[in-house]
Design a protein around this nucleic acid. Structure first.
Lengths: 115, 115
DNA sequence: TCCAGGTTGTAAAAATCTTGTAAAAGCCGT
DNA sequence: ACGGCTTTTACAAGATTTTTACAACCTGGA
């Protein structure tokens, strides 16, 4: 199973590719990132994430979501905070930073620039 | 039936060749290696391996998969752990360590370098 | 603006879960 | 019954997940 997020990010099971760099996620990190990225652009309330990824009913007092978000952001590197935004008082939102498909620079002229 | 994994590994029924050395697998070891190598590069979940190779329904508590993985790795020798990777919390993945076909250096010029 | 109260970020410890391994036990065909 | 293969057992070793405790942050109302 491969999920393509944008031309700089794809996921194959727990192996994620970011800008030609591979990184390994744990299972929960993967499930959380999958849930967020499959709803790209939408704000996912904490209650929903805790319900779907953890099976927690609302009212459960826990910090585990925050901790996982932190580890995901760190693994995503420099742009971690940009990929996963905090919506204060509600939840989190995953956004694409670049177009879903790479720009095609097929013309030889592209390589001639500056030559 | 012969399966070529890479230029250092091939399988012919229960006989496996690794770096010009032949080794004998038992039936279960063969079935497991076949299942993994036929899905080279993909993560095979434990549940899938237990279902296809053993016919176990998910929920069965057993360590037999781990034991077989261990014996396979040991028989594959030095690079056993590289050929069969553990995807923690999910399953295992077989990967090629070298190109599927050896590089052809047929030109005499290739041997002339440095001569 | 500033404060209070709730919310999120974070590091590190604790708890839980998964996998590795050796050795014993079980099974099956001869 | 014997020998080889497979499975279970019982821990050891390792990795992940959750909790804890506190710092930092945001927001609305005085």
């Amino acid at each position: 199973m491969t999920i393509f997020l944008d031309d700089h990010l794809s996921i194959d099971w727990t192996t994620v590719r970011v800008d030609d760099q591979k990184l390994i996620l744990t299972r929960k990190e993967f499930e959380l990132l999958a849930m967020l990225s499959q709803n790209e652009g939408e704000t996912m309330p904490r209650t929903v994430l805790l319900e779907t990824v953890w099976g927690y009913r609302s009212g459960t007092r826990t910090r585990t979501l925050d901790v996982h978000i932190r580890r995901l952001r760190r693994k995503l590197g420099q742009f971690g905070e940009d990929y996963i935004q905090t919506i204060f008082g509600v939840g989190y939102r995953f956004v694409r930073l670049r177009p879903a498909r790479p720009l095609q620079l097929s013309s030889p002229a592209a390589f001639a620039i500056g030559a």
